[in-house]
Design a protein around this nucleic acid. Sequence first.
DNA 1: GCTTGATTACCTACTAGTAGGTAGGTTCAC
DNA 2: GTGAACCTACCTACTAGTAGGTAATCAAGC
Lengths: 213, 213
Amino acid sequence: MRAGLTASRPGGRQQHGTNDLGKDTGKGSGPGRRGGYNGFSYADISDAIGIRKASIHHHFPTKAELAAVVVDRYTQQAQRGLKSLSQQVPAPAEQLQAYLGYWQGCILDAFQSFWVCAMLAGEMQMLPEDVASRVRAHFRNLAGWLTSILKAGTEQGKFQFNKLPEEEAQILMASVHGAMLSARALGDPNIFLVIVSPRIARLRAQNGQARPE
Amino acid sequence: MRAGLTASRPGGRQQHGTNDLGKDTGKGSGPGRRGGYNGFSYADISDAIGIRKASIHHHFPTKAELAAVVVDRYTQQAQRGLKSLSQQVPAPAEQLQAYLGYWQGCILDAFQSFWVCAMLAGEMQMLPEDVASRVRAHFRNLAGWLTSILKAGTEQGKFQFNKLPEEEAQILMASVHGAMLSARALGDPNIFLVIVSPRIARLRAQNGQARPE
DNA sequence: GCTTGATTACCTACTAGTAGGTAGGTTCAC
DNA sequence: GTGAACCTACCTACTAGTAGGTAATCAAGC
């Protein structure tokens, strides 16, 4: 089984006159060029995992379904990660720090679950509804987790802020996303911490230590 | 004219039995579905401006060149806008407010220059270098403008912050980008102001008025 | 233990349509 | 008459998706 593969294809689709003027249209060739909803194809996946295109269609009939499952899985993965983080690391401040650490890892590796969802968020208005709704859910989850961390932090007297925890969580989340975007756009990973660190510092600042903003 | 084309192809491709079960593959049909580097095509532009695909190639031989020119133009447009804003509106605080107002307009209209560049920033690692470098330039310009506004504001005693203006500018820029992303992802335009307003308020806060952050 | 029959996973071969891009011709202003 | 702007007609490669087949697995039913 799984013998012939494409190499030994007999009479199928002899292209017009294409003898190896490769052309390199700038797509598909080489890695690191793809991403986002329009940036991948069944063929890409087929190449990557070594299973034929049609077989992928067997499992995920349409691209929208495929993307929805991917985002679903990423969301669940992220949720599990955040949950276990909450359980293993007791201090809210450290949880937040670990969260940021994860994001820092995303700066260079674009295929982390968080970043995939963030990138799709940028394409929101052109996503199939099934995908968009899942990206929305991912953002809600993230905001929810951050809110709970902030609440726990204030209850323990570790954090202090004069907004609603929900609002502060939104601010934090946006800060991280914006910082990622800037770090990538400017090609400078340091930018991430320049932007994000002060936010965290401020949360802890007014906590008796009178740390200057 | 415009006779033959594919319709009159002689021996080619008669399909199984697929008569007009439209299927709607989810692409190309309907507006508002496209964006980003992989999200538009020469054909799209051709349809939009009523000039044939080949003619667009005459002006912009490759897609990378086309995108580079678009980003260039958007960058220049943004720069002109920011410059005239600096000239027409004297107060730094109002300039900042106008800047945010512009972004608010982007929440619903995805084809504003700022947002196009922000979206491309999300795709940074898969952009042709000629495009990526221009997106980088756009971000640098934006940061530069914000820095100058912040400097002017502090010199006039209107703003106060204990970081470098460059850093504060980066924070502000990231805040706006992140806020846009959240507003779009969550489908809630209000989120934008929830995130961004406090930042602006804080800049002015310590300015004698002791406005609670 | 065998044979069924359904289910599953995967395959080859194909489809219509679209992608970016090119060849070569026409039209028109300078 | 030169050159830019624009065109038709075409190209190859790739897109999502389909048709239909093969091999393996597994639960009956005998």
